[in-house]
Design a protein around this nucleic acid. Structure first.
Length: 200
DNA sequence: GGCCAGGTGTAAA
DNA sequence: TTTACACATGGC
């Protein structure tokens, strides 16, 4: 079976991230990633961008906490499921402030288990926040990932298996900045899937 | 007009 | 433990 490292090299040769930030996710390393990761659940990034634009000026932990639920619902309406996402985002932000006090402390101290215990945060959202928001060595698995891997003949059963397949093939061969590689790897997977219009 | 999108939580079988 | 369903807007 092909390794994830070999897939990485193939994607890299396609120059898919030429017009992207170094870590692909816009605003990597900021609280904006937390908001974007929740908003993009079962939603196109185009619609998330509209919401993030509406939230201009509120995309730090402190400023986000000044929003009331109704105003937040209104801002994030374009990315759908706003009756669920608004209260979950407010709860998440409050818990971050309560348990870590600042976003910087959250970045260094949060665990995957802590994130998974929050309502509205499943494995993909947790890994997105850890990888792109906290620069941790955690690979994100999403629906695009499964489509691309299927192209290369890799079909696995659950989230953890895909994550392990991707991470193990890289860490076994790579001595560089793992977070940067993981960040770009997932970004290339998404861009490749979009470019090729791969279907579920 | 129908189908799908960078998931998650809950309830029933 | 597995499967089904709700959640909602916007682009094609």
């Amino acid at each position: 079976m092909i390794t994830s490292c070999q897939i990485y090299r193939k994607l890299e040769a396609m120059e898919l991230l030429q017009s992207s930030p170094p870590r692909w996710w816009p605003g990597a390393g900021t609280f904006e990633v937390v908001v974007g990761a929740v908003l993009t659940q079962n939603t196109t990034w185009k619609n998330v961008e509209k919401s993030l634009l509406n939230l201009e000026g509120h995309l730090t932990l402190e400023n986000f906490l000044s929003l009331d639920e109704e105003r937040l619902k209104n801002h994030i309406r374009p990315s759908g499921f706003y009756n669920q996402k608004a209260p979950r985002l407010i709860s998440l932000a409050k818990q971050i402030a309560h348990d870590f006090h600042t976003f910087e402390h959250f970045q260094t101290d949060v665990s995957r288990e802590w994130l998974l215990s929050q309502k509205g945060v499943g494995p993909e959202t947790a890994d997105s926040i850890l990888c792109y928001g906290c620069f941790r060595n955690e690979m994100v698995v999403d629906s695009y990932t499964k489509r691309v891997l299927r192209q290369y003949g890799v079909v696995l059963s659950d989230y953890h298996e895909y994550k392990a397949f991707l991470e193990n093939g890289i860490t076994a061969h790579c001595r560089e900045d793992i977070n940067l590689i993981f960040s770009r790897f997932h970004g290339m997977i998404v861009e490749y899937s979009k470019k090729m219009k791969l279907k579920a």
